[in-house]
């Protein structure tokens, strides 16, 4: 069964790189480039894993994450938070908001792949 991932990332180049990596790894990839309608897209796409950028136009990744965790259907959905701010305080903030994993930009491609494989398998 194909694992399905939803990328929520406004930087097209970054989204494109991740998409390339995952497609090559056998994932089905959907992507979305802004924050306001992100939750609707998540509900519609019902992915196995979500990759969520923090700074998004329209709405911040943390806000999306908090609302997502408040929804009983989505409480356990694995979410990987990608952030261009890599301090430990940012990691704590992400985990507080309900992130399953936190990876700071710039990342190693293998790191993202390993994390997503593990999250989808669990």
């Amino acid at each position: 069964m194909t694992r399905r991932v939803l990328l929520i990332e406004d930087e097209p180049h970054i989204a494109e790189a991740i998409r390339y990596l995952l497609v090559r790894d056998g994932w089905a990839v959907a992507s979305h480039g802004e924050g306001r309608s992100a939750l609707e897209v998540i509900r519609r796409e019902a992915p196995d894993v979500v990759v969520l950028d923090v700074i998004l136009p329209g709405r911040s990744g943390y806000e999306i994450l908090e609302e997502l965790r408040a929804d009983p259907d989505l409480t356990s959905l694995p979410v990987l938070v990608l952030s261009a701010r890599g301090q430990s305080s940012d990691r704590a903030l992400a985990e507080g908001a309900g992130a399953s994993r936190f990876i700071a930009k710039p990342f190693a491609n293998a790191e993202i792949l390993a994390a997503l494989r593990q999250m989808a398998g669990a």
Partner: peptide, 20 residues
């Protein structure tokens, strides 16, 4: 923090695509 963000974003693309 903003500078950091603005620097990391292009660096992320550069690193990811170099690895690719």
């Amino acid at each position: 923090s903003q500078i950091s963000h603005e620097l990391r974003t292009p660096m992320t693309s550069i690193r990811a695509f170099s690895e690719i």
